[in-house]
Amino acid sequence: MKIIRLLSTLSLATMVSLFSCQKEEEQVATSDSVSEETLSKIHKIGFSTQNVQRIDEGYLIEGDIVLTEADLNTTPDITLLRAGTEEQYRTTNLVKSLPRNITVSISSKLPSSYVKALDEALARYNAQNLTITFTQVSSGANISIVSAGGNFLASAGFPTSGGAPYGQIKVNSRAIGNQPQSTVATILAHELGHCIGFRHTDYMNRSYSCGGQAVNEGASSVGAIQIPGTPSGPDAGSWMLSCIGSGQNRPFNNNDRTALNYLY
């Protein structure tokens, strides 16, 4: 999606677009075609009701997050992990049975270069010495990265109530286009972040990374806990920001590492 509003930290000479986790030029199956009852349920559990898309698994919200009907019909005691005004957030469900190795596979239908991008994404996590680790496998994975089309770059969901990571990441390589390995690795690391329970860093104001109208996604009944030692202001480099610039690389910064270590 071509836009002219860019993060102040990006170079205007080299950055000509931002792409969010879902958007191409055209939009289909938006919130206009989703019932008011469903939108109310989405808002009640603390997610944005703007540009909701109906998909096979349920609903695509906030650009790249999958919510199923089961997600919408539960009333969890949600706790929001807060690392400042626009910092790290998590959902109620996290990966359990720690320490734990999570296996990840990638479809042969995706470009072969994505295999190395996935290696890079997993290495970023494994370098943090967390109680979760990641290993790339050819089949039988806990998380399968598959090829997909549609109005998004990539999408994923959140851990199950039983503590398993979300099992699938959909990747639209056509929408991503000819991005460098580090950008693809950042996109994959971002979606893996959702799979283990992270929400978008700019949850309180998506315009911070996406431009356009300021959107506070609404905490609803969701609580908020600030992580000790993290700042109270915006964090331009976080890997879990809603939107990323073309060609941009976002390895974990200090605040990301604080949040990861807090949870895992």
Rank of each mutant, 00 (worst) to 15 (best):
L110F: 09
G63I: 15
K170H: 07
H190L: 11
L263W: 02
I78T: 15
T186W: 02
S40G: 15
G218I: 08
V137P: 05
G223P: 01
I45K: 12
V34H: 07
A154I: 06
A83W: 00
Y89V: 11
D71F: 11
T9Q: 06
Q181W: 07
K116M: 11
V115A: 14
L67F: 14
L110N: 08
G212E: 01
M204W: 03
L153H: 02
S35E: 09
V184R: 07
R174D: 15
Q179I: 13
I227G: 04
Q128E: 15
V28R: 05
R124H: 06
Y203V: 03
Y264Q: 00
V184P: 03
G163M: 03
I176S: 08
P111K: 13
A127L: 05
H194Q: 08
G140M: 09
T38G: 10
G229I: 08
D56P: 06
D56L: 13
G193C: 09
A189F: 10
S33T: 15
V28L: 13
G193Y: 03
S35K: 05
K44N: 15
A175Q: 14
F19H: 08
I225D: 07
Y59W: 15
N254C: 01
E37C: 03
G150K: 04
N255C: 01
F152W: 00
L18Y: 05
L7H: 06
I106Y: 07
I42N: 06
L80V: 09
C210N: 05
G163N: 00
P159Q: 09
S155V: 13
S105K: 04
A164P: 00
S17P: 02
T230N: 01
L67D: 12
L263A: 07
N178C: 10
S221R: 10
E24V: 15
L39T: 11
T258V: 05
A156L: 01
A175C: 09
R124S: 13
G197E: 05
A70E: 14
L12Y: 11
T14P: 01
C243Y: 03
L122H: 03
E26V: 14
A121P: 04
A141W: 02
E36N: 14
N73C: 13
Q88D: 01
I61D: 05
Y125W: 11
L80Q: 08
L118F: 12
S35P: 05
F134Q: 10
I143S: 00
S220L: 12
D202W: 04
I45S: 07
A214H: 07
Y208V: 12
E25F: 09
A83K: 00
S207F: 03
I45Y: 07
